[in-house]
Design a binder for these strands. Structure first.
Length: 271
DNA sequence: AGGCGTTCCTGGGGGC
DNA sequence: TGCCCCCAGGAACGCC
């Protein structure tokens, strides 16, 4: 399930091969993949030159002069250049470049979508800060957590609160900081939130330098991310905690499969 | 406000 | 072996 590090890895991987390409057509093999536009809407006998490729939250952003295409991979989406004549089985959209290159949006489960916007207003209005931005400080995380009384796991998964985290990195971050996922956000002491802040940032940075985690679905051109070897609790139910002699348990929190150590994660539910 | 259920989807895994 | 059922989950939405 692509989260911030996986999306960043895809961007880093395809960016240089996309900049200065001219997009001449989008072929929506599975039409619902285009969420808020039709292919013919944006190509009025003209090509669109790609100015930049970047990431915002879990979106891959393709920048044109006056528009952006935002791509969300959701659970099983992949984005890669077509290599050979055959169309992959789960290709949902093809981006045809003037040079002949073809970028494939591939998505087994059909949750991923492409969006067309004039600017970042729509995305920014629905998303919280970027956890790796220099402007995002531990004080800001304290302010966010202490202004709400919410289940901490549900809060960290909420993209309107903080961008980019998903199920894997939330479980890893909470384990690293010794916070139980059923803690209430405003009950977690400042010192612990600072530890959480540092955990989130170091885990995301390490995962990006490992080119992400591969859990079943994520890959870049068939290559696996290496962060799967760094996971401490996610998918480790029944194993011994790497930090203490506790056991890794799995249960549901906020509707998601959740992994914790039964000993070293403190549940903050009252002051 | 915030928790919870539902929807979208398909491949894979468990049970028998 | 084969078949059926159910489950995984990011995000939007509606309901309580």
């Amino acid at each position: 399930m692509p989260e911030l590090p996986e999306v960043q890895t895809v961007v880093d991987h395809i960016k240089n091969d996309l900049i200065n390409e001219e997009l001449i057509e989008i072929n929506p093999i599975w039409p619902k993949v285009l969420d808020n536009f039709n292919s013919k809407d944006i190509f009025n006998k003209k090509s669109l030159k790609i100015k930049d490729v970047s990431r915002r939250a879990k979106f891959i952003i393709i920048h044109f002069k006056a528009q952006i295409i935002a791509i969300h991979l959701r659970m099983t989406g992949k984005l890669y250049f077509l290599n050979g004549p055959s169309i992959p089985k789960h290709a949902r959209a093809l981006f045809q470049m003037k040079s002949g290159k073809v970028l494939v949006f591939d998505d087994v489960r059909k949750f991923g979508r492409l969006y067309l916007y004039d600017n970042f207003k729509n995305i920014n209005s629905r998303h919280g800060p970027e956890p790796l931005d220099n402007s995002f400080t531990s004080n800001e995380l304290i302010k966010i957590l202490h202004s709400k009384k919410r289940n901490i796991k549900a809060l960290l998964l909420d993209q309107s609160v903080l961008s980019g985290l998903g199920n894997i990195y939330v479980d890893e971050s909470l384990w690293t900081s010794g916070i139980h996922p059923n803690s209430i956000s405003n009950m977690i002491p400042d010192t612990k939130v600072v530890i959480l802040y540092n955990s989130i940032r170091s885990i995301l940075k390490n995962a990006i330098s490992s080119k992400g985690t591969t859990i079943i679905d994520f890959s870049v051109n068939g290559q696996s991310g290496k962060y799967s070897g760094e996971l401490k609790v996610f998918g480790k139910e029944g194993k011994v905690c790497p930090k203490c002699d506790g056991q890794i348990l799995k249960f549901r929190v906020a509707g998601r499969g959740t992994h914790i150590c039964n000993k070293c994660q403190c549940k903050y539910i009252k002051a």
